[in-house]
């Protein structure tokens, strides 16, 4: 009996160890991806690499236009997605009644938006932004090929739409963390609802909103499928100046260099370096988000 119990204990330990090894496997996957990209790419990274355009059919030179285009499109995406996302979260958490049909519809729509495949966003961007909106704008302005073609504007709006749920979820989580008593206090002192939101609730939610912004930038930087047909270009000999220009961007540039290059061996060091830059960027953004979040959580714990 006693040895049977002992055996069971050992068996249990092994089984628990197996679930623990799943955690180790996740850690290993992360380490291997990071490790191989760092080892393969660090030699390519230099000041010239980051500040020069590609040369000789992408076999020499750097990735500056791709970094520039990425920053350009991400800034435009933020201008679109942050106000809309924060306002939607404020509506859902501060104004809407949870059991209203409209509230449920908005929540359902946000959930649905989060589940739409990224390539479908690309199709939508092409069908709606470029052909419908862009085409109509061109016709009414008597132009051709100004708005009705792929460009930064449409790519950024497609990315914004895709990332909307992320900002909404992050903001709502931040709003939920603001104690109800603070709202009641402000309202009792005679503040209106909007004054309360503007001066009491939102300032406290800023770290949470910032987490959302950081995550959205990270995700936007790495997304390729939605922008392939809405604005990103294989190669451009000049930097984009206007939102109606096409642009190069890091993620798409990596894809092009690894899959469309006529001389894969010559482009590989550049592709590795570009992948390292993108991975370093998304990684540090994610770490920043994790730090902000854990800080706010521990502050919350102290506050209680």
């Amino acid at each position: 009996m006693n040895s049977k119990g002992h055996l069971r204990k050992i068996k249990d330990r092994i089984k628990i160890g197996l679930t623990g090894s799943a955690v180790l496997l996740i850690l290993a996957i992360l380490a291997v991806i990071l490790g191989t990209v760092i080892i393969g790419g660090y030699k390519s990274i230099s000041w010239e690499f980051l500040t020069q355009p590609p040369k000789e059919g992408m076999t020499k030179g750097g990735i500056f236009p791709a970094i520039f285009g990425m920053v350009f499109s991400l800034l435009m995406m933020l201008i679109a997605v942050v106000p809309v996302g924060v306002a939607t979260a404020v509506y859902l958490h501060e104004y809407a009644r949870p059991d209203f049909i409209l509230t449920k519809l908005i929540r359902g729509a946000v959930n649905n938006l989060a589940g739409v495949p990224s390539i479908v966003f690309g199709l939508f961007g092409l069908g709606f932004f470029i052909q419908f909106i862009g085409g109509s704008l061109d016709r009414s302005l008597g132009q051709s090929g100004l708005f009705g073609q792929p460009c930064i504007l449409w790519a950024s709006l497609t990315l914004a739409l895709m990332n909307l749920p992320m900002i909404i979820v992050a903001t709502e989580e931040a709003l939920r963390a603001v104690p109800q008593a603070e709202r009641a206090g402000a309202l009792a002192l005679g503040a209106t609802k909007w004054q309360t939101i503007q001066n009491v609730v939102l300032p406290q939610a800023i770290p949470g909103i910032l987490t959302g912004v950081v995550l959205v930038v990270s995700r936007g930087a790495g997304e390729v499928a939605p922008i392939m047909f809405t604005g990103a270009a294989y190669y451009l000999p000049y930097l984009p100046k206007l939102p109606t220009d096409q642009f190069m961007t890091l993620g798409y540039h990596i894809f092009v260099m690894t899959t469309q290059s006529p001389d894969i061996d010559a482009t590989m060091p550049i592709a590795m370096g570009a992948t390292l830059v993108l991975l370093a960027l998304t990684f540090s953004l994610n770490i920043i988000a994790i730090i902000i979040r854990s800080r706010t959580r521990s502050q919350l714990r102290k506050g209680r």
Binding site: L30, V224, I287
Partner: peptide, 18 residues
């Protein structure tokens, strides 16, 4: 979360090249 943060194009690159 860090694994979730790896862009899919980087995962594709890793799978394709390495």
């Amino acid at each position: 979360e860090l694994l979730a943060g790896i862009p899919s194009v980087v995962l594709g690159f890793f799978a394709l090249i390495i």
